[in-house]
Each structure stands twice: as structure tokens, then as C-alpha cells.
Simulated scan of single mutants.
Amino acid sequence: MTEEQNVIFDDWRTGKKYEVSVFSGIGKRESQQDCAYVAANDSSVFAVLCDGMGGMNGGQIASHTAVEAFLEHYQYKSSEPEWMKQAVLNTDDYIYRIRDEEGKLLRAGTTLVAVTLNKSELKWVSVGDSRLYVYRQGELIQATTDHSYFAQIRSQHEDGELTDEEYLNLRREGDGLLSFIGMGGIRMMDFNDKPVQLMAGDTLLICSDGLWKTLQADQLQEILNNCESVDTVTQEMNRRIGLLDRKDQDNYTYILIKVMEE
């Protein structure tokens, strides 16, 4: 995977069990720091998406390296129990140890969200604020948790631990990540211990924050409600991002996987 090639889709499908579509845009940024890989055949789908962070090209290096490292674990370790957890820990350590041309630690990082579908059984892992949504019967549900400062204080506010005034004051301090790949010790990780059985018609949306911070959940749900195929969904999402034409539009990458047959 080269720096210019930030998305790869290895498609070995011959049947119609899964519909799969992938899209990536650079937005208004000077470089593309999102990276994704998808592989699909007639019985399974594997997808991993990373959103890099770091000065100069550090984020790009981190996201590309993380995707490649996670893919290697999938290829050689996926038959082992809890391989996804171990893949996250090993990838984090590997990214943390990357050094620049002067021999100093690169100090770059990346979010990561990965899914496996095997005979419609879903497993996932995520670190950071790239997201996995499940769309079922007209409703879009966020399956992963954002490992961010904003998500933490929002949860505390909803639980009554913070007053309205405290919450608003804390929101002004920004929205940094509390856990990411490359920090040298994962603080938080989302992982489903038991596979989730998907049904015909269920659709997965895997995306970087460049999508969900631009199009709200109700907008994404509306698009999924009104588009018949995942290809038309990806096109409509990209069209709406283009119409907004935000000056600070981040890189955005998203993967859609629809189960056609149980």
C-alpha cells in the first residue's frame, strides 16, 4: 500500500451474499491521513479503517502502518481466540516505536476500527473515535464508543455527574482522544466478546470522524433509508459533503457492508 493509495478493496465475491462499497475523500486537507483495507468473498468480509494523527506526514505513516500490521494479524492469527485484542496491542506497540529520519520517536498515532463478518456473524474492535454503525430496519445504531474527552464529559453529564454549567465549561477545552493506536499502552478498547448475528438487510457503516462530524446520525440514517444499494449510499454521502463545502473539511473515509442473504 503506497502513500498515494490509501484505500484497497480486494474483491473475491462471486455471489450476492454481501454488498460492499468503499469511498475516501481528502476534504480540504493538504494530505490524506485516512487509510482502509477491505477484503470480501462469498462467506466473509474483513475491513479495517484508520485515521492518522501527527505532524507533517506522521499521521499518514501511522495509519498506513497500522492497517498493514492489522491485516497481517488477520491473515496469520485470525483462527486464534481474541486475536483482534492482541492485534491492537501489538500494532500500538509497533506504531509507538516508529522513529523518524533523525532516529527520534515519530510520536504519531491513529484511530482504528476493524470488523470481521463470517457467515453473517459480526465481530469488531475499535480504539479512538472512528466509528462502527449498524443499520437495521430503518434505525442507525452506533456500535462503538468514542474514546474522546468530549464523549467522556457528555457521558458524565448524562449520568448527572456534571451540572449543565460544568459541562458547557469543559466542552470549551476541546476534544482530544483519550485512547489511540501509538500511545504506547492502550487505555480503552471496544471489543465484542460474543459475535453478533446479522440478518438479511442489515448494513454496517465503518467511518472516520471526517464523515460523522460532517453528517449527523439522523442525516446518515435518512440516506440509508432512501438509497437501495450501498453504492448509491456512498455516492449520496459524498454529494452531501460536497454541498456543505466546509472550509475545514477533514479527510473522510467510509465502508458500507450490506448483508443480502442470511
Rank of each mutant, 00 (worst) to 15 (best):
Q5W: 05
D10H: 13
E165V: 09
K28H: 13
Q137C: 04
I61Y: 05
I141E: 05
T2G: 15
W83A: 04
E3V: 10
G58R: 00
G54S: 01
I61K: 10
T203D: 10
V230L: 07
H157Y: 15
T91D: 14
G138K: 09
D245A: 15
N251Q: 07
D10G: 02
I26N: 02
L117P: 11
E158A: 06
I98L: 15
V48W: 03
L122I: 04
L106E: 01
T234L: 08
A114D: 08
L224C: 09
Q219K: 12
A62P: 13
Q137R: 08
Y149P: 00
R172A: 11
L112F: 03
E72D: 12
R239A: 13
R246G: 13
H73C: 09
C207I: 03
L198D: 09
T111P: 02
F23M: 08
I98Y: 01
E101N: 10
N118Y: 07
S24F: 02
I206C: 12
R240E: 09
N169K: 10
T214F: 01
K194H: 03
D218R: 00
A108I: 01
A200T: 12
W12G: 04
S208N: 06
N41Q: 11
S24Q: 14
H147D: 10
M199F: 06
R246A: 10
L204V: 13
Q152S: 02
D250C: 03
L205G: 02
M84C: 09
T91G: 08
C227M: 15
K119R: 11
E101L: 10
I241Y: 09
D100A: 00
P81W: 04
W124G: 03
G182N: 11
I186A: 08
Q32E: 11
F180N: 00
L132T: 07
L220P: 04
Q249D: 14
F191A: 02
T214C: 10
T14Y: 11
I206Y: 13
V38A: 10
I26W: 02
Y18A: 12
E236Y: 08
A40Q: 06
A47H: 09
E166M: 13
L132V: 06
L112R: 04
D100H: 00
Q142T: 09
E68Y: 08
L211H: 11
L204C: 11
L89V: 14
V113S: 14
T65F: 11
M189R: 07
F46E: 11
G27A: 06
W12S: 15
E262V: 04
W124H: 15
M56L: 13
P81V: 12
V196I: 06
G55Y: 02
Q219W: 01
I241T: 07
N251C: 05
Q197Y: 06
C35P: 11
I95S: 14
L140V: 07
D159K: 11
A217F: 00
Q142F: 00
Y74N: 09
E82G: 05
L178G: 00
W124K: 04
K123E: 12
D218N: 02
R172K: 15
M56D: 14
N225H: 09
R136S: 10
Q60S: 14
N192L: 06
Q5T: 15
C207P: 02
Y37C: 03
I26A: 09
V127N: 00
